[in-house]
Every structure is written in C-alpha cells, then in structure tokens.
C-alpha cells in the first residue's frame, strides 16, 4: 500500500526541504541538537506508549511516571544519596505508577483510558502536595556528582549518552514487540482480547507487564530529563503525552497491517522533531511551528486513514 510509505515520504520531503531552504538545518550541530534535545526523551516515552497501544490500550499517565521518577531521583540526589541508589529510587517510583495502572486495568478491569486518566489526576495532586504547589527542586551545579553531567550531556565514542539509552530501549522494545512470545501475545490482546482469553493466554499478567514496562521507560526518561535540566520541575512530563500518542499512531501507518510498531513510532517522533526544528530555522516563530506540525500530523493521518478506509470498504 502506498499509504505505508506516506510517513517515510513525509520524512524525506521535510528533511530535503529544510536542507535546501536553510543553511543551518543540515549541520552536525543542529542534527545532534534535534536528536539529543528533542528526539531522545519523546522517543523513549513513545516506546512505552507504543506497547500500550499495541495491547489495545493507551497510557495517559506517562507524564506521571516521568515526574514521579524525576521527583524521587532529584530529591535523593539533593539529599546526597549515592547515585546508583538514586537512580534505582527513580526507576522504582516510575514502576509504582505502572503498578498502580496495572492494578486498575488488569485487576479491576477499568478501561485503560479512564484508569490512566485517574492516575494522571492523582499524580498531579501527589506532586503538588509534595512540592508545596509545584515548586521546582533545583540542584546546584557544584553539588551534583560528575556522572550527572555525563548522563545529561556526555558522549561515548562520540555518541551522546542519551542516544545510547534511546538505542538500547528501542532495540529491546522492537525485539519484545516484533520477535518475542510476550510481544505476540500483546498483539493478540490488542487485536481481539476475547480470542486471547479463549486461547488460554494469561491476559491479566500480560496486561500488567505492558503498563509496568511502559512506566519503566518513562522513569528512564524522567531521570534523563532531570540530568539534562538539573532539576525536578513538577508536572513537566505531561508535555510528552500528546506527542507520544501522535507519534505512535503516525507510526502505525508504517506497518503493512496498520499496527503500532517501534520503527514507525521512532520515525513519527523524528518527523515531529524535524518539522518543529526546521520551521524554527526557516524563521517561523515557535507559534507557527506548532500550527505547522499540527497540520502535518493531520495530513499524514488523512493519507493513511484515507487509504485504510478505502481498503476496508473494498473488503466489505
């Protein structure tokens, strides 16, 4: 289907356009900035979203997991807790959010949209109450361990550390979703939950893992974010929510069968980031840039859903 390549075509087109239209787009500095400053965090968060949507659900509480992880991590560092412990604490905090979701969705059978919406609201209260209404926690430069700077801005063999994390997470998620037994069960769950149940799959257990894994990557994103900005800023994770959903659904157009997939999601994230960056460079201000990316997402959706609709009517 031609619509399958709408996403790639859009990506190539905007890349080519901005390379020609600006002198600054196609420079190593700018490309690295896109990847490290914009792509990395959204990509990690979107991986968790991809898994949730593949399982037929959705996770509106990604921001909560990011924030809680960041809150615990930064508080621990500020209290001079050893770095590995602080990281573990952050990850545990994120997992707690996932476990709460898992309990609601797999245990109480609340629909994912509403369950994670509830989590999001409760998470907002928790953060406001523990920061006297949203006071950020800043880490003073001299008092943070050096590894902090490395996580935030360091490189290994010239590759930014954040990108290594993205690459690792993406590889793991791609393997999970595309190759593993668990991934296949998740696909079945997303395609037709009744069939999964009647085929003897342990639906609750798999569902719980979906939300746990999702919150784990969000926690990783939260820790990366904290290292980059050297602070915990309450309620900052929500900024990733809608873009993560958008990128995941853009990514489904890349799959031959229209399912969420890791490669497509990453392409979707990249498209959103390149457009945002490129529009800025050709002199559109931040405001028009928002409009531009909105319209672009819309166009990709039109192309892919238009194709999907035509397919389904032909089949009927």
């Amino acid at each position: 289907m031609s619509s399958r390549y709408a996403l790639v075509a859009a990506l190539v087109a905007v890349f080519a356009f901005f390379s020609v239209a600006t002198t600054t787009f196609l420079t190593p500095g700018n490309l690295e900035s896109i990847l490290v400053n914009n792509f990395a965090l959204l990509a990690i968060v979107s991986l968790g979203m991809t898994l949730a949507i593949a399982a037929g659900g959705i996770d509106l509480s990604v921001g909560t997991a990011i924030d809680i992880a960041s809150l615990i991590f930064v508080s621990a560092v500020a209290a001079h807790v050893a770095m590995p412990l602080a990281v573990l604490g952050g990850l545990a905090g994120g997992l707690l959010v996932g476990a709460f979701n898992a309990g609601l969705i797999a245990g109480l059978r609340i629909t994912p949209f509403l369950a994670t919406l509830g989590t999001l609201f409760i998470g907002q209260s928790v953060q406001q109450l523990s920061t006297s209404g949203g006071q950020p926690i800043y880490l003073i430069t001299g008092h943070v361990p050096p590894v902090f700077a490395f996580i935030g801005h360091g490189t290994v063999l010239g590759i930014p550390f954040a990108m290594i994390v993205v690459g690792g997470c993406a590889a793991i998620f791609a393997t999970i979703l595309g190759r593993s037994l668990f991934g296949r069960r998740v696909e079945a769950l997303g395609a037709q939950p009744g069939v999964a149940w009647y085929s003897g799959l342990r639906v609750s257990r798999d569902t719980a893992w979906v939300y746990l894994l999702g919150s784990l990557v969000c926690a990783i994103a939260g820790i990366l974010l904290s290292c980059t900005v050297r602070a915990y800023v309450p309620l900052s994770g929500n900024a990733y929510l809608l873009n993560a959903i958008g990128a995941t659904f853009l990514g489904t157009t890349f799959s031959r069968v229209g399912r969420p997939n890791v490669a497509g999601t990453l392409l979707g994230v990249l498209l959103l980031n390149i457009v945002a960056n490129g529009l800025l460079l050709i002199g559109w201000n931040f405001y028009w840039q928002q409009v531009g990316s909105g319209v672009l997402i819309f166009l990709v959706l039109v192309v892919s859903f238009g194709g999907g609709r035509a397919r389904s009517t032909r089949a009927a």
Binding site: I245, G294, F298
Partner: peptide, 14 residues
C-alpha cells in the same frame, strides 16, 4: 482521538 488531537495542536499553535 487522533483527529481531535491533531486539531488540538493546530489550535494551540494558532
């Protein structure tokens, strides 16, 4: 969910 999400982004920008 997606259609109104895209519209939401456009509105925010405008």
């Amino acid at each position: 969910l997606l259609a109104t999400l895209a519209a939401m982004n456009v509105c925010a920008g405008l």
